[in-house]
């Protein structure tokens, strides 16, 4: 314990009340959260993350089964293993949350993102943009004499890479859905 004299504290225990997990590596996880599609459920999930200081890298949500009012929220988050364990436990504590699946940890996850990318330009740059789009198997869904809108689906890295390549070719605007995920194989969840 330091003597409180205001000099540099000796190298001792840093934490006081708080768990010192600073030395644990931060991991990135994709979680599929299956919820009852009732009013406020998304606010509960998002409020949990903001209220407890957790990160959200991306979030997607939509009803997936109208007959049972079930929605699927896919959250990409980051944290130490301790924080990630807490995130799962706290999500499960929310009354409308039925299941939390750690897609990343399952090692059988498929992750996809849809993006719409607007590129404007003319001459060589326009041709180059179209050529790269073909390599990436992006669809052109709108075009004018001076612009394209590409539709590209794939893993997040692939989309980021495509966006980077479009930047010098006249990138105007990007819209991304955030990550969607599902597990491989015949089983559910």
């Amino acid at each position: 314990m330091s003597d409180g004299s205001g000099t540099t504290a000796p190298a001792g225990p840093k934490s006081t009340y708080f768990l010192n997990h600073a030395d644990e590596a931060v991991e990135r996880r994709t979680l599929a959260v299956l919820v009852d599609n009732e009013p406020g459920v998304l606010a509960r999930v998002v409020g949990l993350f903001s209220g407890r200081g957790y990160n959200i890298d991306s979030l997607t949500v939509a009803e997936v089964d109208a007959s049972s009012h079930q929605s699927r929220i896919t959250i990409v988050t980051q944290g130490t293993p301790h924080i990630l364990e807490q995130i799962e436990a706290h999500l499960m504590r929310l009354v409308p949350v039925g299941e939390v699946v750690d897609i990343t940890k399952s090692k059988r996850g498929i992750e996809r993102e849809l993006s719409l990318i607007k590129v404007a330009g003319s001459g060589e740059k326009r041709v180059e943009a179209l050529r790269i789009a073909q390599i990436f198997r992006a669809n052109v869904i709108d075009t004018t004499n001076e612009s394209f809108i590409f539709e590209l689906t794939g893993a997040s890295d692939k989309i980021s890479q495509f966006v980077d390549l479009m930047r010098p070719l006249g990138l105007v605007e990007v819209s991304r859905t955030g990550v969607l995920s599902i597990k491989r194989g015949k089983e559910k969840g």
């Binding site: 314990m1 330091s2 003597d3 409180g4 205001g6 504290a9 840093k14 006081t16 009340y17």
Partner: peptide, 11 residues
């Protein structure tokens, strides 16, 4: 008055 260290004062 000297029981609490620098870190403790912030709690």
């Amino acid at each position: 008055g000297n029981e609490i260290g620098e870190a403790g004062r912030k709690l």
